[in-house]
Design a protein around this nucleic acid. Sequence first.
RNA 1: GGGCGCGUAGCUCAGUUGGUUAGAGCGCCUGCUUCACACGCAGGAGGUCCACGGUUCGAGUCCGUGCGCGCCCACCA
Length: 889
Amino acid sequence: MQLEKVYEPQRFEPHWAQWWIDAGVFHADVKSPAPVFSIVIPPPNVTGSLHIGHMLEHSEIDCTVRWHRMRGDNTLWLPGTDHAGISTEMMVVRQLAQEGTSRREIGREKFLERVWQWKEQYGDTIKRQMIRMGLSCDWSRERFTMDAGLSRAVREVFVRLWEKGLIYRGEYMVNWCPRCQTVLSDLEVKHEESQGHLWHIRYPVVGTDRYLVVATTRPETMLGDTAVAINPRDARYFDLHGKTVTLPLMNREIPIILDELADPKFGTGVVKITPAHDPNDFEAGKRHDLPKIKVIDENARMTKEAGRYADLDRFEARKRVVADLEQLGLIDKIEDYTVSLGRCERTKDIVEPLISTQWFVKIKPLAEVAIRVVDSGEIVFVPDNWTRVYHEWMDNIRDWCISRQLWWGHRIPAWHCQDCAEIIVARQDPATCSRCGGSRLEQDPDVLDTWFSSQLWPFSTLGWPDDTEDLRKFYPTSLLNTGFDILFFWVARMIMAGMEFMGSVPFRQVYIHALVRDADGQKMSKTRGNTIDPLVVTEKYGTDAVRMALLMAAAPGTDIALSEDRIESARAFANKIWNAARLIFMNMERSSVQPWVPEDLQAYRPEANQAMSVPVEDRWIFSRLNQVAEHVTRAIDQYRYHEAAQELWHFFWHEFCDWFLELKKLRLEPETGLTADWRNLLAAFEAALRLLHPVMPFLTEELWQRLVEGAAHRPKSIALARYPEYSQAWTDLPAEREIQVLQDIVTAARTLRAEMKLDPKAQLDGVLYSRSAALEVARAHAAAIQKLASVKLELRNDAAPQASAVIHSMPEFDLVLNVPRANVTEQRKRLEKEREQLDKNIANSTRQLGDETFLSRAPAHVVESIRTKMVEYETQLQKVRTALNGLSS
RNA sequence: GGGCGCGUAGCUCAGUUGGUUAGAGCGCCUGCUUCACACGCAGGAGGUCCACGGUUCGAGUCCGUGCGCGCCCACCA
């Protein structure tokens, strides 16, 4: 079992990914009618990357799931849903545009075919990558058919809501993106501050020589004004009530109305009312029964209603309108003004508020229930400050516009009778009109908002609307792990849908993780060009390294700044493990040691070890393994992935490799390699791999399989082996103390050598002075000390002599090196620094121990620990003084 | 206009209920081609924990104010 010298994840990661699925180790048990990936891959001629946020999410979920499985919990992995919607559609639209074709030209059928070609072309890449990320992937056209599978659930839901009167179709003010050619929900509109102007326009009052001055940031909309409003309590204009003004440019006479909408304190206190192009005005228009004149169309061009401005682009029209008004002397003034512009989340185009007929969900009744289950604690957010954010939104929720003018999505199951205009909503495609019996039915051309189907995820994936075994077994799920960016889009709606259609919560806990950002903390975006492409980095550094880097940084609360540096150092860690394995395997081979795996760590009770006179480093490493198992378990349990990852990192690298393996190497037989007590090493390594497996699944599987190859009784996969568990009995404090002293002795000698700038290869002699157990430790580990620090120590049960030029003092011992010429400067520097620190500590402790209030109020153990430390400080200070004296004599 | 979060070593960040020498990774300095690993080994430098005030025997940690940065929500022309 030769290992390559350098860790090359590319060679085994794809293999294990496929193997896990084939062997059923890790694949979801559920036959999902939903498509299973939520990653957007752009077509080849569009630069960009995957949804970076998912990397973290997938690593965390996978880590959690693996960990649960290894602990024997019954877990279920549910794949995510596809974002059938604008993103996908727009990519194909862009591709078409580059070929000189438009979507409309090609038609719905051909367009959808085109989307499929694109998905299939890149499906393999997506699939491979998803598996590498630890996500099962069963993605095929059969499973993702807009008119089958999931759409059955979607239809069911639509029909039920319709029958309950919770879906309605109506004319409302909607957000329209002229580029996407579709309506957007409120959540898809992002507001952005930008520099604009506030135009003050004079409207002549009919029958007088007065003007009313209105202010607007969008002068072109004035063409559609059907009133101006003043506040009923505004004395300035009260006498004008009942009169009319002439709308400039259009020469239309429009009424002056009284409405609270007009704020006397803002601007002139007069507001123009454009019911067709502003949500506020739309409401005001309803209150006063005003006509709605649509002057801007779906292409953001002016309509016929705009008179001579018809067909102009909205911004061109703005210029003309302003110029014309100026010429007429009707511009009162123009102010600079910061306006909050609504932009399309995807195209960044300025969203135009339009009147349009759309489908809506009446959301209040659903929201009330969803608020209740969070209030009552049936659903808990982690961290819990998100509860507030959730409330904030749910309390002020507005009806949800669910229709989209796209093709890539679930068709709305509604038919319009061409004869009697009846709307038929049905589970089965109707053949005739239920009212007039006519057969001229046309299905509504719109598709549903992608989140309409996504909200069904917790139960549609389990077979709903059928009453399946999966559904009964796995609904509700215990945990939802997601990013805060889709809290409203998805999480809130899943809760509403769960309550409405299943009658119970879809999940108990919602863990909100951080988002991944670039090295400078900026949001990754294609336009900024600061994306890290998961496809590229996992290929380059390995999935395990990417996961480790992400988890190391996954502290809750703050976002993650991801850089290649971090991934690189995670790869170094992976390489370290790899090479530790190389060392072990090479020696196993030399000694023909039989691969062997203990049943579990229980085999290594410290009592048993002591009885078998097992080397202390073995007792020590088992004791440490035990502690680490406990810490990691607790950390993952509380979603503190960064703590788990760091604990594992430190343990594996700086304890297992730096000390344990180094000590073990000293026991190598020159000819035969491993000796009998290497059984313990194998057991420790095997357990350590299991400990690491949830975080670095591929590397650990590869090494574990090699390690246990041919072993008699073993699980098929490390993923099916048991996760190491803490047991107090395994903690071996004497062993830990002994190794600690050994480390101190070796480190002290090394520090001295470095300070003296001594030849690192030269074997030195030294003396260890001690009156404590350190003497015994040094005696027992003389060989180790000689190897690890290149120092042969003479042991003296005595205090250190007054004058020693080369000395390193620790509380337990003094170590003196016998060297002819000492480099005194370096040592003096260190000693003086140490003395300063000690002086400070002693002064501090003295002050506190002399403070009556402190002594009486501080808890006893705190006072006690300061007393103990005080003694230590003083002994140490004495030693440092002696050493300094020795230097000067 | 509301709400939330952040400010700790050159950089990116940890720091669970306040407890006394504040940690890690990267970077930096010194020395090592030691037979697992230069994606390495050994040693080291580097911090008035944004400022001021308060609570406390004790504050990086709790409270207030200010400064700086970021995010979310919001129909004020």
